[in-house]
Write a protein that binds this DNA or RNA. Structure first.
Length: 376
RNA sequence: GGUAGGAUACUCAAGUGGCCAACGAGGGCAGACUGUAAAUCUGCUGGCUUACGCCUUCCCUGGUUCGAAUCCAGGUCCUACCA
C-alpha cells in the first residue's frame, strides 16, 4: 500500500472506501469534498470560515493564477498557502479543463496548448513542463497533470487522440516532478483519465496511467454537459481500473446525490463549484432538496435554512433575513449562503465517512437520496 | 390672473395617425447554474389563456378619421416663468 494513502475501510455492499490521504499540509479524511478556490480564494468566504466549516483541502487553479497575479509572484511571496492565508492542503488544477472551456482561443499540439488569455487576449503557452513549473511555484500539495479534456459528445477518433495525448503529457509531468524533486518533497501528482463515453478507451487509459504509478488518479472529462446517467456510467467504467491503493478523484462534480452515488462507485475525492456558485445566486441545499431562498414564499419565514444544522448561518439567521440579503444584492448574503452550502457538502461527506465505518453505507445513502429527491 | 410646458403600465421613461398591449431602465415574479471569464445569466411582468386569439388600456369628456396614446375642442390636475 502506498505510504501517503491509507485505506481504513472498504464497504462490502458497495465499492465505497474510507481512507486517509497524507499531504505536506496535513491529512485528509476521505471521502472528501474540496471547495473550489480558483483564484486563490474560495469565493465569498475567508480561511477562518473554511476552518470552522471543517474544510480539509481546497482547490486552486494553474490557469487563472498563472495569468494573474503570476505564479512567480506567488512563489516570491512564499507560495500559495502563505499568499492566501490558508495552511491546509491545496490541490491545483492544471488548466486542462480551462483550455477546453476556452475552446475558441486554443491551439493544441503534442507540445502543449497555445491560447489567448481571457483577461487581455495576450498569447500564452501551457505544456506539461510549464504546468508542473507553475504548480511547483504555487507550492501545490496535489498537482494535476495537464490533460486534454474532449467535449461531449465526442467522436471516438477525436477522443482516442485526446486520450493518447493526455497519456504522453502525464508521462512528461511525472518525469518533471521526479527530476525536480517535487515528488520527493512530499508533493503529489495525480493523473487524469479521459475517454469520454468509450468504456474501452477509459479502461485502457486507466490501466496505462496506473502503470506509471502516480500518487493518485482522477476521472476527467465528466461534468462537461453530459446527462447524469452518462456521467455516472463513465465514472463506473473508470473507477474499477484505477489502483485500489491510491486515492480516486472525479473532477468537477457534483450534486449531493451524485456525490453519494460516486462514493458508492469507489471515488474518494470531489470538487465542484456548485455549492459556492449557487450560493451567490440565492440557492441553498437542504436534506429535502435544494431551495431558492430568493423566492417570495420565504419573505417572512423565521426559520433557519435547516433546523438544527450547526453552522454560523443556520445558528444565527432566518430565511427571511437571508432572502432579504440575497434579493438586495448584499455581499453578506453570498457569504452566509456559501457558508451554509459548503457546510452542507462537507457535513454530507462526514456522514458518508461515518456510515462507511458503520458498515451501513448502502442503505443509508439510498435513503438519503430518496429523501433529497422527494423534496419538501 | 397671464404665458409656456406636461399628464403613458408598479416606478421612471420612449412613442406624436395604422408595423402599439405600447422601446428602454428599475422594481417584482420565476428559472438556470456541476475540474468558476458567473455576487452571473435567462424568461415573464394589463386581463383571460398552453397558445393562436379575444378583451380592456396611454388623465377625463366629446369630436375628426376607414383607423387615435398620437390630430381638434372643452375640462381636471401638475410644473416653470411673468404679474
Amino acid at each position: 500500500m502506498a505510504e501517503h494513502f491509507q485505506l481504513l475501510q472498504t464497504d462490502t455492499a458497495t465499492a465505497a472506501r474510507r481512507g486517509r490521504l497524507t499531504t505536506r499540509h496535513g491529512a485528509v479524511e476521505t471521502p472528501i469534498f474540496m471547495p473550489v478556490g480558483t483564484q486563490g480564494t474560495v469565493k465569498a468566504v475567508t480561511p477562518v470560515h473554511l476552518r470552522e466549516l471543517g474544510a480539509q483541502i481546497i482547490l486552486g487553479n494553474t490557469y487563472h493564477l498563472s495569468l494573474r497575479p503570476g505564479s512567480e509572484l506567488v512563489r516570491e511571496l512564499g507560495g500559495l498557502h502563505r499568499f492566501m492565508g490558508w495552511d491546509g492542503p491545496i490541490l491545483t488544477d492544471s488548466g486542462g479543463f480551462q483550455v477546453f472551456s476556452l475552446a475558441k482561443l486554443r491551439d493544441i499540439t503534442d507540445a502543449g496548448v497555445a491560447f489567448q488569455s481571457h483577461l487581455d487576449g495576450a498569447r500564452h503557452f501551457l505544456g506539461p513542463r510549464e504546468v508542473m513549473k507553475i504548480q511547483a511555484d504555487l507550492g501545490s500539495d496535489i498537482a494535476m497533470v495537464l490533460d486534454e479534456c474532449p467535449p461531449w459528445p465526442c467522436e471516438r477518433d477525436e477522443c482516442a487522440r485526446a486520450v493518447a495525448r493526455s497519456e504522453r503529457w502525464a508521462k512528461v509531468c511525472k518525469a518533471v516532478a521526479e527530476e525536480s524533486g517535487f515528488l520527493a518533497g512530499g508533493h503529489h501528482v495525480f493523473a487524469i483519465v479521459q475517454g469520454s463515453t468509450f468504456d474501452d478507451l477509459r479502461r485502457e487509459a486507466a490501466q496505462a496511467l496506473a502503470a506509471m504509478d502516480f500518487p493518485g488518479y482522477a476521472v476527467g472529462g465528466v461534468s462537461v454537459g453530459e446527462p447524469e446517467d452518462e456521467m455516472l456510467k463513465q465514472v463506473g467504467a473508470t473507477a474499477p481500473f484505477l489502483p485500489a491503493d491510491k486515492p480516486r478523484y472525479t473532477m468537477g462534480l457534483g450534486t449531493p446525490p451524485q456525490l453519494l452515488k460516486m462514493i458508492a462507485l469507489g471515488v474518494d475525492m470531489f470538487d465542484c463549484v456548485l455549492p459556492t456558485r449557487v450560493a451567490r445566486n440565492g440557492q441553498v441545499f437542504t436534506p429535502d432538496g435544494p431551495m431558492n431562498l430568493r423566492n417570495e414564499k420565504f419573505r417572512t419565514d423565521p426559520r433557519p435554512i435547516v433546523e438544527g444544522m450547526d453552522n454560523y448561518t443556520c445558528r444565527n439567521f432566518s430565511r427571511a433575513y437571508l432572502r432579504h440579503l440575497s434579493v438586495a444584492g448584499e455581499m453578506l448574503g453570498g457569504t452566509l449562503l456559501t457558508i451554509h452550502n459548503l457546510h452542507f457538502f462537507l457535513d454530507l461527506m462526514a456522514q458518508a465517512r461515518a456510515h462507511i465505518e458503520a458498515g451501513d453505507y448502502a442503505t443509508w445513502h439510498r435513503a438519503w437520496i430518496a429523501r433529497y429527491e422527494a423534496g419538501e
